[in-house]
């Protein structure tokens, strides 16, 4: 049996290429959307990425997470505070009744039922299987309806041309953007830049992990301590949770 059936081999070859193409295609799009997951490996719904923020460890005036985010994602001020995008910001709070104050970072809460995704006319706003909510910059038409719908003011519209971009995090004038939970780092088994910076400053107010894994540190903490979802009344099942407010 030395004679090889060439036609059959060719056929299999073509099939393999076609299959590879199908598998690669979503990977390629994902790569364009700010991430570094190896081509073909889709996000898994076995995981749900989330974050727990302990406001009692967060100090007013500390801006480490914000600075780290800006550096990581190339989000810089242009001197136009009204229009400059902010992916993460520090909010100072004061309870009206008790006068007690809190300081905490606020960013996209990576809702399980994200209103931004519901309202987006083109489907540019989408939620990955692992719970990370992103904007596909290739099909965002810049209508800003998602910004109207987000209860947390988490999204920004890019009002002008930006330079010095991080190649892993493409951004563009005329589109809407928000915290990606540093998807390009998470897909490389790293932590989001803000979480790393908070820990580096010995504050440890931010904890990142898999909400679906009962043995993860974040799940254990949520099972043990009283934690809150911001605007829990809206029942969006946020991926970012808070402790101490």
């Amino acid at each position: 049996m030395s004679k090889v059936d060439n036609s059959r081999r060719n056929f299999i070859g073509a099939g393999a290429v076609a299959t590879a193409g199908l598998v690669i295609a979503p990977g390629v799009t994902l790569f364009d959307m700010a991430n570094a997951k190896p081509a073909g490996e889709a996000a898994s719904s076995a995981k749900r990425w989330g974050m727990l923020i302990d406001s009692s460890k967060c100090t007013p005036g500390c801006n480490d997470c914000v600075t780290a985010c800006g550096k990581e994602n190339g989000v810089a001020s242009t001197g136009h505070p009204q229009t400059d995008p902010q992916w993460i910001r520090k909010i100072e709070l004061k309870e009206l009744k008790s006068g007690r104050s809190h300081s905490l970072p606020m960013m996209c809460q990576h809702c399980a039922e994200p209103p931004c995704v519901d309202v987006c006319p083109t489907g540019a706003s989408f939620k990955r299987a692992d719970g990370i909510v992103l904007v596909d910059r290739h099909i965002c038409i810049g209508c800003r309806y998602c910004m109207m719908a987000c209860p947390y003011k988490a999204r920004s519209f890019v009002h002008e041309e930006h330079h010095d971009q991080n190649p892993d995090v493409p951004r563009g004038k005329g589109c809407v953007e928000a915290c990606t939970l540093c998807v390009h780092r998470v897909d490389n088994d790293q932590q989001p830049a803000c979480v790393e910076a908070c820990a580096a400053g010995n504050k440890d107010a931010m904890l990142f992990g898999d909400l679906n894994d009962p043995n993860s540190e974040i799940s254990k903490r949520i099972a043990t301590y009283a934690t809150t979802q911001v605007r829990a009344d809206l029942a969006l099942n946020t991926g970012v949770r808070y402790q101490g407010i």
């Binding site: 520090k90 909010i91 309870e95 606020m106 209860p151 407010i245």
Partner: peptide, 12 residues
């Protein structure tokens, strides 16, 4: 965003 509390930030 936080009913029952006053809020302030650099994002207005």
């Amino acid at each position: 965003i936080f009913p029952g509390m006053t809020e302030s930030s650099s994002f207005f």
